[in-house]
Amino acid sequence: MDLFFQQIVNGLVLGSIYSLVALGITLIYGIMHLPNFAHGHLYMLGAYVTFFLITDYGLSYWPAILFAVAILVVIGMLLERLVFRPLHHAPHINSMIASIGVMLFIEAIARKMWGSDYRRLDSPYDGIIDLFGLNITEQRLLVIVSAVVLMIGLHLFLKRTVIGSTIEAMAQNREGAFLVGINANKVSLMTFAIASGLAAAAASLAAPINLVYPSMGAMVNLKAFVIIVLGGMGSIPGAVIGGYILGLAESISGTYINSEYKDLAAFVLLILILTVRPTGLFAKEAR
């Protein structure tokens, strides 16, 4: 039974990381109907920025995360302005291809600038906590808690602030939002900023558990896309719930079925859910 609870905790850690990345993708999709394939690479960029702020600039962990989020917010805004806004009136496929281009570009830049080495981001939370007989490292606990805090923060922002409401309005009904005078460009910019900031936060939290290297974003990206399909494209609760479902499914099936088949188990789950609900768990409407 201990093993079961241990795996639940492990699943929650995985799920937290997946959810935070998936949230960014689903936000952008909800507003711009753009599957941003480069999102995982923004995550990677966030991890590198945190890493260098700590090792080269001597910042401690939390300030480094804050700065990394701020830097990624700026990068996200630049991407929106320079790459995606000019394509706004072009056929849809153009921005999709542009996002793949951005993805390759970011990875190539990372390899050129920082090399292909694996780097280890040390966090000050290296201790082990004994939680009712379960061993959990402080960093993993931190991932779970911070993810929840970030999600609540995002929720409050969207529901309680005017800017947040404009984003929600755009996601719910584009034409309606225009009619009441919401500036679409501003909202797109804001969405990219938030999504990139979330990616940076997720990366800084997760990086000490794993390693920092140029292709680290690719695998998380793939999982995040699975999650938003599972949760319903553009749905925020869908991304959160979907992330936890996938994380838990992976760790539980890895334990009780076979670790070699755990990706398979996760995808079978995806197929099953999509058979019952083809638009995903929380889709507002079929798109």
Binding site: L14, A206, I209
Partner: peptide
Amino acid sequence: ENPVDYNKESDFSSAVAKALS
């Protein structure tokens, strides 16, 4: 026996927990 994909995992602790159990 608990093989895992070394290049695709975000966190190895679940595979390790199973092996150690």
